[in-house]
C-alpha cells in the first residue's frame, strides 16, 4: 500500500478564476507509481475551492459568475468584523460562501496508473479571493 501526499502550489492571478490543475494531478499520480487506487484533491483554504466541470473557458466564466450571483460581495454578512486570528477585518464572506457551494475537494479512481475520469472532466482550483499563492493537497492511495 502506497500513501503519498504532495502539496501543490497554485498562484492565482485574478480576483476570481478557475485554474486547470488536471495536468499537475496526473503528474503527481504518475510519479507515485500507484497503478490501482484513488487520488484525493483538497484545497487548504476556505476562500477557495476544488471542483470538476467541463474544461471550457465559457464554463469557467459561467461558474464564477453564477457563484457571484448567489454570493454577491455586496451582501449583508456578519463576517465583516475585526478578526483577531488574522489581525484584520473579514470582508470576504462571499468568497467563503462560494467555497461552501462550489466544494473544496474531489477524488478520482486510479486504474492502470491513470485517473479514471470522463474525457471532458477537468479538475479546477477555484480562486474566489485572489490574487494569492495557494496550496492544494493531493493524496494518492493505492498499490
Amino acid at each position: 500500500m502506497i500513501i503519498k501526499t504532495v502539496m501543490l502550489t497554485v498562484q492565482s492571478r485574478r480576483e476570481q478564476e478557475l485554474i486547470n490543475i488536471t495536468p499537475e494531478v496526473e503528474r503527481i499520480v504518475a510519479e507515485t507509481g500507484v497503478k490501482e487506487g484513488l487520488v484525493n484533491v483538497l484545497t487548504m483554504h476556505t476562500s477557495s475551492g476544488v471542483l470538476v466541470t467541463e474544461g471550457l473557458p465559457c464554463l469557467e466564466e459561467d461558474v464564477v459568475n453564477h457563484l457571484s450571483r448567489l454570493c454577491p460581495s455586496e451582501g449583508n454578512y456578519l463576517h465583516r468584523r475585526y478578526l483577531d486570528i488574522d489581525g484584520r477585518i473579514g470582508f470576504n464572506a462571499d468568497a467563503h460562501l462560494k467555497s461552501v457551494l462550489g466544494g473544496i475537494s474531489c477524488f478520482f479512481p486510479i486504474s492502470a496508473g491513470k485517473l479514471v475520469k470522463g474525457g471532458r472532466q477537468t479538475i479546477y482550483f477555484a480562486e474566489y479571493d485572489g490574487p494569492l499563492s495557494r496550496e492544494v493537497a493531493v493524496q494518492v492511495l493505492g498499490e
Binding site: 489581525g87 484584520r88 499563492s133
Partner: peptide, 20 residues
C-alpha cells in the same frame, strides 16, 4: 507586534494585487 497573521506570500502576489 504588528498583529498581521496571514501567511507569507511570494512577491508576485503583491504585484498582482496592484495589477488587479
Amino acid at each position: 507586534v504588528f498583529m498581521i497573521r496571514n501567511r507569507l506570500q511570494p512577491l508576485d502576489t503583491f504585484l498582482l494585487e496592484l495589477d488587479v
